[in-house]
Design a protein around this nucleic acid. Structure first.
Lengths: 346, 346
DNA sequence: CTGAAAGCGCTAACAG
DNA sequence: CTGTTAGCGCTTTCAG
């Protein structure tokens, strides 16, 4: 309540003065090291009387660690990332780290800045989801000033830990499923093709098409952003080409597409089937529930956080450049399975 | 690339050595203070050769500020808070502060911990959204170790800045609108009534009912959580009571309720009208688009951040306990206006 | 214009 | 068991 004469917050000096002991004793008591019964009491009393809170900055300077971790993600509004945040948070909290969230909006310079900022010792480690991977990223990554885990695919050979989704396989899973349920004109709404996820999903789409004996038709593919409105607009364009299904590169796009279909009086899935990716909360929440490919957001978040924490604890000698890949899983819901086929879950 | 002999990151000492000047000169050059042309060059060259990044922790210890701000919110998955984060981020970024996001999950102890953690000097200020306000909150708030802005209502007399929504009025707006469009059995899905928002929304609901000459009917009111699934379950319960409208305390609840209605083959709004609150991205994105009450999430976020930054810059002498209130605004969409009435927006 | 030195709050040797 | 002291990296007087 009443801090030191001289204003400001109480420090170990104020406590030492008030308790009539040295600052070393204060430090020891506060850190639970040995001390005489009476010393302990006096220090603790003084500390609580003064409302002492240890200065984390000073402590960090001393021992070179902040007990803070940074998680840099492209879009805090995308439920897939929210799921990751939750998972990361769970691990870091348990491990005694605070989590610093940084929304980069997928701006390359912002991502690079975050990477470089590792050097300012504000946090002990970093998890980053770069949507695009430029040479600058690789450079910044290889000479990062602290441990980094990348969420996403990296060219092989880069000595950085990463946790990746297999969205090539995932996209193929969805397209194949659409084909299985009888769709033959499968439209594709993709995010920007200069992003890693965009590229991979297109690859999966094409591969599955080939596998199913369907021709790739430019007119059935729209490249746009990753947001809901982008999905609605793209679906609008696509509908002129009479697709019997629309596969979307994520659930936000799928949500937008579904709205566009509804608005035009088309039924899902009877007139047009819709599938998304990420299996985010959106997929479960809207009507009809959306078939989606679970790319393991939660698992990847957990894994990335664990990797980072292990690296920091420095216990297990993990090889540099460890890579984990989460297997995709198709979750079929009403937006693709026809009511008469009793194959859908939840 | 090649740090100091002795390992670790380069510091001003390494630079001083490499450039053959004193650490004071290094500091001056790096901070753009005057120095001889040659000194400047040598220091800058050394710094870039060594890949120097200033240690923010040391700087913080020196000048007592971190240039970091904390935003503690109850649920990072709720789009209304996402909107706030965006707004807060915009302001803090411009003002040169980094933003530390902390998801409390509305756990009281977590909130109190955040409040107390202001004392550890990890961030220069705090914006906090307490869902419940206990006496402990008030205590912690009044003797916080740094500037705090509360998002939400506080008992009057607490000398803390706050930015609040007027959800009493907002809820009434929605209920009145439902009445205007002909609804007479208006159900209400509310969040926990021991929360401030929960209490206020109920108050608004009751007030509007009275005003419209409708009786309050216990059977038409369900109290639950604030999430999507809670909304779906609650709507399930409510439907047995044959409401002609459901007013939900937020958009997540409304989304869940809408799904439950669809699943039972009920049409929105022909069979049951649905209205939510927050006017979040969800309301615009689903089908049919949801009527919702904009409680000014974005504006409140911006305002709170501005207040905090002004307080920190210490320029304008803002009176302690400044309170701003964002006016609610009804946004009518297809989930309540009947197609024949051409009154809806977007 | 530049260097030496103090000090931010804390922890950890090292002596007593 | 306790006190003195050095030092984490940086900024900022204060002398030169």
């Amino acid at each position: 309540m009443s801090p030191v004469p001289g204003g400001g917050q109480p420090t170990i000096v104020s406590i030492a003065r008030q308790a009539g002991v040295s600052i070393a004793s204060v430090s020891r008591v506060l850190n639970g090291l040995g001390a005489r019964r009476e010393t302990v009491e006096r220090v603790e009393r003084a500390a609580s009387e003064l409302g002492y809170v240890p200065n984390a900055v000073a402590r960090s300077l001393k021992d070179g660690r902040t007990r803070q971790l940074t998680f840099a993600l492209p879009d805090i509004g995308n439920p897939a990332y929210v799921a990751m945040v939750r998972a990361v948070q769970g691990v870091t909290k348990t491990a005694g780290y605070r989590l610093l969230l940084h929304s980069t909006d997928a701006v390359v310079d912002d991502e690079l800045a975050v990477l470089r900022s590792l050097g300012d010792r504000t946090s002990d480690g970093l998890i980053i989801c770069p949507i695009r991977v430029t040479d600058d990223h690789i450079d910044a990554l290889t000479c990062a000033a602290g441990p980094v885990v990348v969420m996403g695919s990296l060219p092989s050979g880069v000595p950085v830990d990463s946790v990746r989704a297999d969205s090539v396989t995932g996209a193929a899973l969805a397209v194949r499923h659409l084909h299985d349920t009888g769709c033959r004109r499968i439209g594709f709404i993709n995010g920007p093709s200069d992003t890693v996820p965009g590229r991979n999903r297109e690859e999966g789409y094409r591969a599955a098409l080939t596998e199913c004996g369907l021709a790739y038709d430019d007119a059935l593919v729209v490249e746009t952003g990753f947001g809901i409105e982008a999905g609605a607009r793209a679906a609008g364009e696509l509908l002129g080409r009479r697709p019997d299904a629309v596969f979307c590169a994520n659930d936000q796009l799928a949500l937008g597409a579904a709205r566009a279909l509804h608005a035009r009086g088309l039924r899902i899935p009877q007139d047009v089937a819709v599938a998304g990716m990420d299996d985010s909360v959106l997929a479960r929440s809207v009507w009809p529930p959306l078939t989606s490919v679970d790319l393991g957001s939660t698992e990847r978040g957990r894994r990335a956080a664990e990797l980072l924490v292990e690296r920091l604890d420095g216990t297990a000698p993990i090889p540099r450049g460890t890579t984990a890949t989460a297997p995709p899983r198709l979750v079929v819901r009403a937006s693709t399975a026809l009511p008469t086929e009793n194959t859908r879950s939840t």
